[in-house]
Simulated scan of single mutants.
Amino acid sequence: MPGAGSAQDEEGTGEGVQELLCGVFDCSPDLAAQIFMRGRLRDFPVRTAIVRQGDRISTLYIIAAGRAHAIVYSLDGQIVLLHEYLSGDFFGVVSPPYSAIHDADVVAVDDVSSFLLDGSVLALLAEQHGCIGLALLRAMVDRLQQTQSRMYEHVALSAVGRVHAELLRRARQSPDLAIRPVPVVADLALQVATTRETASRAVNALERRGIIRRDADRLIVVAPHRLEELIL
């Protein structure tokens, strides 16, 4: 069963979560401490449903550690990945009326530690501290842009092209164009809405052509311009 408790009782984790909140809300340590005292920590074991599609929720969930996927199912039973949530990402209620029906299952891909903040508390804090509202707005705009980019890719690119685009996107997040850890092919396929076999063939072909190189703990894009040319 997921573990729950007040944030105040988790002193060993508290400092790390407060530091995370500083980054999430672009706020001072003092304000992060106030937010921390108003929320609670909760852990979800791997493969646990954090939120189910159709649940009525009134809480903001902030991922403190681990990874979670927001998924829906197509009419033919295929899993469709809507979002991947990593440390510092959040989902749930972020705007009035602070209670809503959730539109997807959110499942813990790893063991997840999260910080929960009631929507009514979030509303009060956002009214009192402009940085919180601005941070929520920026995050929502970024997520919308990511969603639009993925929608374009699904319409305009082949399945293999989407694999190439995702690898390049992940590599460009690191100065050395390295993806750490090495992507799991099944996760990569889910990310771009294709089959595991298609993703595996695309990655293997890139390796054979010397465009990417696999090390023990990372996948390096050796020739980013050549990879970009293959995004079709």
Rank of each mutant, 00 (worst) to 15 (best):
G88K: 10
A165H: 08
E166A: 13
L134A: 14
Q78V: 09
C27L: 12
G39H: 05
I50Q: 02
D142W: 05
A171S: 02
A202V: 05
R208Q: 12
L167E: 00
Q148C: 07
L136N: 03
H225L: 10
H83R: 11
V106A: 02
R47H: 13
A216M: 08
L227D: 00
S114E: 02
H102S: 15
Q173S: 12
A186L: 03
Y85Q: 04
L122M: 06
D187V: 02
G14D: 12
V184T: 07
R196C: 11
Q173T: 06
G3S: 14
Y73N: 14
G77E: 07
C131E: 15
Y98S: 07
L190M: 14
A108G: 09
L86D: 03
V141L: 14
A64H: 07
D76S: 14
L136Y: 05
T59Q: 09
A156L: 08
R170M: 13
L137D: 01
Y61S: 06
R213F: 06
L125T: 06
A33I: 04
E197A: 10
D55L: 00
T194L: 00
L117I: 03
S74V: 03
A199P: 04
G23A: 09
L230E: 10
L41K: 07
G130Y: 00
P96R: 13
D176L: 03
L134D: 15
Q145R: 15
L136Q: 05
S99G: 13
L206G: 02
G39R: 08
A126N: 05
Q8R: 13
L20Q: 07
R67T: 09
G133A: 10
E207G: 10
D215N: 11
R213D: 10
V112G: 08
E19P: 06
P29F: 05
I50E: 00
A186F: 02
H164K: 02
D43N: 14
V182P: 06
Y85V: 02
L230C: 06
V222F: 08
A171Y: 00
I132S: 11
R56M: 12
R226K: 15
D111G: 11
P29C: 09
V46A: 14
H69M: 07
V17I: 12
Y85A: 11
R67D: 03
A70G: 13
I211F: 04
D217Y: 07
G5W: 01
R52F: 01
L232M: 10
D217R: 15
D187C: 01
G23T: 03
R162N: 06
V185K: 10
A216F: 04
S99H: 08
R40G: 15
S158G: 11
E166K: 10
A171G: 02
S58V: 05
V109G: 02
V112E: 03
D103A: 15
R56P: 04
R67F: 03
R38F: 11
V107F: 06
I220D: 09
D217A: 15
D103W: 00
V155F: 07
D215Q: 11
E166T: 03
A104R: 08
R170K: 13
P183R: 08
F115G: 05
I211A: 07
L134Y: 15
V155W: 05
A108Q: 08
G23R: 14
F90E: 05
S149W: 04
D118N: 12
E11D: 12
A65F: 06
